[in-house]
Design a binder for these strands. Structure first.
Lengths: 158, 158
DNA sequence: CCGTGATGCTTGACATGTCAACTATTGATA
DNA sequence: TATCAATAGTTGACATGTCAAGCATCACGG
């Protein structure tokens, strides 16, 4: 048990982890952060943040019908307040249009504007390339394995 | 190729992912977020955020010698400006003491205060429990597999 | 038709990240 | 020894998250 793990070396930690679970949690958070940064670098040149891109992609999927604010939030990992302000910025940049729903005036429907749509389309290839590259060090089989393990972790959180 | 993946269902996405890499990146980010929230819920009752706890733990490891600001940053996933302000808040709460280093007046050394130390110690057990629980749905063997796969991903980002 | 609770956002306040620009020091070198 | 680049941090500005409160609007029971 006194072996020094690679992750321990990475974070220059002298004490061993108290449990495998603890090491795994730290490793998961660090890995996700690295990958997030990689995606970030791809999007930055286009003036879009990952979250903004996420919303734009979700709205493209919604098509002509548009989506209420909280529906968007439901497909992301964020609470309502953040969504409102994210949409504020996207609207300010002219990529999103918002309108109060006539049927239910509590809701605010959101649509992609034509510039917003063309931006997302321009980003499809670079983003997909970046995503592939971000995990390209793993064989396809290992990618599948990782995918399933992560899914199992998520399944346990509900 | 037309099978709908579990992740696709999770985020109510109608279109299939463009690549396995893309699905893996999304899955990784979503999983990390869930785990991060679990850790967050554990720390919140103590008035500490995960990042603050992280710094306190790092400073405990440094002992009497203390650590310069950027050294702390190097062991976390954050840039320098964030560290400065994080330390500002920790100092305001009385958990951290800072002092300009006499040998190299550019550096600012940081130490845990006695209250800071006792806080970290009080948190050791709850945090370790939460970490174990966060991945408890995986067998020990699967936890090892996941750990190694994540490590391989990180190794590829350098 | 009238409350009343639930729903859908929005706002305010604060913690976290990030970048770019700026200050203070240090150290290396011409 | 007089620069001058590199190093260590801080500050300002902005995007992202989160919580708690507040405001309309809706739906339902009486």
């Amino acid at each position: 048990m006194s072996k020094t793990s690679a992750l321990q070396t990475e974070i220059q930690q002298s004490k061993p982890f108290r449990s495998l679970g603890q090491e795994l949690v730290v490793g998961l958070l660090r890995t996700a952060d690295l990958v997030r940064r990689a995606v970030d670098r791809t999007l930055a040149p286009y003036g879009v943040t990952p979250q903004q891109y996420n919303v734009l992609r979700i709205l493209r999927g919604a098509g002509e019908a548009g989506l209420p604010t909280l529906e968007i939030g439901g497909r992301m990992l964020e609470q309502a307040p953040g969504i409102t302000r994210l949409l504020d910025r996207l609207e300010a940049k002219g990529w999103v249009r918002r309108e109060r729903c006539p049927q239910d005036r509590r809701q605010v429907l959101c649509w992609l504007t034509p510039p917003g749509r063309s931006l997302v389309e321009k980003l499809d290839d670079p983003v997909d390339d970046a995503d592939r590259e971000a995990v390209a060090m793993l064989s396809a089989a290992d990618q599948e394995r990782l995918l399933h393990l992560l899914e199992a972790v998520r399944a346990g959180h509900r």
